[in-house]
Nucleic acid binder design. Structure first.
Length: 202
DNA sequence: AGAGTGATCTGCT
DNA sequence: GCAGATCACTCTT
């Protein structure tokens, strides 16, 4: 195991501030530690994306989690190495992006504040305002051009780029969205006051 | 509040 | 092997 990065941080290199990449070790921890630290991080896919403002945590002890009943063909990436992507198709139409943490656990990326690649995002999403480009897991996947092609790929390699937050964000927690089991478990993490959330906090 | 959408999983034969 | 329910969603009414 390498050095563990427990907090977003910045370092000085080459005369300017550089945002460090979140390494695989960053994700090799309990989801509840990792999830709040992702708020404010920048997610890019082929240079397109923005700042993470909303995530949800899922783990093996959690009846709402795909991993609750053990590995299946669909959820196999959740039991693979940490720091990799788990993508799945939902309702026959949409795709959802997760970051794998400890085995059987992952973090659903639910919303971004778009910062890069607006042309590509608008083209893929078709005539919505900026605030609605990535305000939901399915929307975000569509805007970034994600599908099952990226399932199982490492997050510290192309096409992904993951940059730690340059400054701390105020993180609020609440109930997860759209589930019917584990509904009372407050494992939704959002940037407080963000205008880019999928839904208001509850 | 309801429709659309089709893969996936469960629990039976 | 098959039928039926479910689904970490989105868009429109």
């Amino acid at each position: 195991m390498g050095t563990r990065c427990s907090r977003p941080f910045r370092w000085r290199r080459g005369g300017g501030w550089t945002e460090p990449v979140l390494t695989r070790d960053f994700f090799d921890r309990p989801v509840l530690e990792v999830a709040p630290e992702l708020i404010g991080a920048t997610l890019l896919v082929d240079g397109v994306g923005g700042e993470i403002v909303e995530v949800e945590a899922y783990d093996e002890s959690d009846p709402a989690s795909h991993s609750f009943r053990g590995p299946t063909p669909r959820n196999l990436a959740m039991f693979g190495p940490s720091g990799h992507a788990y993508l799945y198709k939902i309702y026959g139409i949409h795709f959802c992006l997760n970051f794998v943490c400890e085995p059987g656990s992952a973090i659903l990326i639910r919303a971004l504040r778009p910062t890069a690649g607006f042309d590509a995002m608008h083209q893929r999403r078709g005539g919505v305002v900026d605030k609605q480009l990535c305000s939901g897991p399915g929307k975000l996947a569509e805007a970034l051009g994600l599908d099952l092609t990226q399932n199982g790929l490492a997050l510290d390699e192309a096409p992904f780029q993951l940059l730690a937050a340059t400054a701390p964000r105020e993180v609020a927690t609440g109930l997860r969205i759209g589930i019917t089991k584990g509904v009372e478990t407050p494992w939704r993490f959002v940037e407080r006051g963000s205008a880019y959330l999928s839904k208001p906090l509850k």
